[in-house]
Write a protein that binds this DNA or RNA. Structure first.
Lengths: 258, 258
DNA sequence: CCAAAAGTGTTATGTCTACACCCATGT
DNA sequence: ACATGGGTGTAGACATAACACTTTTGG
């Protein structure tokens, strides 16, 4: 019952990813990945940019805290939210011991436009990050590798796009994330083979050339049964908009007998 | 600086895997996966079995705490140690809010013989677990899926075997973990193709039939450069005996500006 | 010499990649 | 009509699985 001895403080932070709006039309450059950061208003790290986050309230779930701070700082709601890793080296934060449970999230590109952005909250291009507080740079780097690897065996790219999208837009997301060109023909077949794409029947006119079909994601693969969830399970995975759920908690640890 | 307001307590637990000794010779059944559990000596969950673990000391790293409690309860040192997931639902533990950072570990089968095992510490067969405290059953289940999936794209099986082993023993580990038979011919080729197996030149005599070659793992793929680590990165991964290192920490969270 | 595991070879099947080619639309 | 992205077809490279076959030991 006593919990007042020296303890680490628990924080929750989130790495948020979105695709830059210039993914539109057909002319422009490749779209790029962006992430919002907040300016630190206190020591340590005053003035530097950091991941959105906060202390964990006693009565809030980890994912809940991640989604809340995400909403508070960006005004957005995540289309995808998954635990990334827990960082807890003793010297992480100057002054006191802080353990941070970090999540990563994907938001729709059309939401980004109405996202908060002021003097203390700014979106940065993924390959043009500012000076970051603590080792948040390494954390973002790790979140990026996770996003890249997961994009290849899962179909989470839709979480970065609006409800309806063209095959080229979907490919653009993959190309932006993986940072390499993909063969349009093979990409199409691969995507169609997953069975998660539904042709809405509509076509996007106004492009300079042949109007492309508009697709949406099949909500069929909705959140699986709660019994045997799979947070970071390497094969396929969460597809719908919901978060990636982990097995239920329950670990305590007054263990270590005697 | 104040850290006395209501906060969650931080625990670290570990799911430990080992291969049952009966993997020897060539006669017997398939070897099986086993895991050590400790009996809870306090409420909540008094008398039930639980994962080894304990509260996180302020000055100890997460992985350090995991390795230490592992050593304390089993007398073993992990050949492989990786963070699994952090469980933090508010109702996880009756009474107070507990957030548990859970690790999973692999230990050599020949070490298991000299492992601790008394009234309060016991090794259980993976498909014959006792009544578990909290939702530790779900956590073990999740650790198992992680082990299974990771076994297929990584070569961590050696962490469950002695220094030198036969191809059949290695295959036995895969079969025990994946719970299905594997073609000996194809398995051999797949393993040889990874380039991580080294023929020691020795042969194991005393079997009933043709003496098999003894292999060891190539320490070539030692821990990669620290800059861009990859804790749970889905493709290939840690091979040597060392732990899986994550990107450095650094997250704080007095953030949430405005 | 026989049984059985160790180890090698061969073929069928499926997946991935590169790239040729036709289609439809705005200009 | 024509340039250009949308969309389809197809052949080679490569990985995987199934299984026949040869080798080597203990009994």
């Amino acid at each position: 019952m006593s919990l007042h001895d020296a303890q680490a403080r628990l924080a929750v932070s989130t790495v948020i990813f979105a695709i830059s709006p210039e993914a539109d039309g057909d002319g422009g450059l490749r779209p790029s990945l962006r992430t919002p950061l907040v300016r630190r208003l206190r020591e340590p790290g005053l003035g530097r940019w950091a991941l959105p986050g906060g202390w964990l309230p006693v009565d809030e779930s980890l994912a809940g805290a991640a989604a809340r701070t995400l909403a508070e700082t960006t005004g957005l709601s995540p289309r995808y939210l998954e635990q990334l890793y827990t960082f807890g080296e003793p010297e992480r934060s100057p002054g006191e011991r802080v353990v941070s449970v970090v999540y990563w999230a994907l938001v729709h590109s059309d939401e980004v436009e109405r996202a908060v952005s002021d003097e203390n909250v700014r979106w940065f291009d993924e390959d043009d990050l500012p000076d970051l507080a603590f080792d948040h740079a390494a954390i973002i780097e790790y979140a990026l590798t996770r996003l890249r690897t997961k994009l290849e065996y899962s179909r989470i790219a839709h979480a970065l796009l609006p409800e309806r999208f063209t095959m080229a837009e979907l490919r653009g997301v993959h190309e932006a994330v993986l940072r390499r060109r993909l063969d349009p023909a093979n990409f199409r077949r691969t995507m169609e083979a997953t069975g998660t794409l539904v042709d809405t029947g509509e076509r996007l006119s106004g492009t300079r050339h042949r109007p492309p079909a508009l697709y949406r994601f099949d909500p069929a693969h909705s959140p699986a049964a709660p019994p045997s969830p799979a947070p970071a399970a390497p094969r396929h995975a969460a597809s719908a908009s919901a978060s990636a759920v982990p097995p239920r908690p329950g670990t305590d640890s007054k263990d270590t007998p005697e």
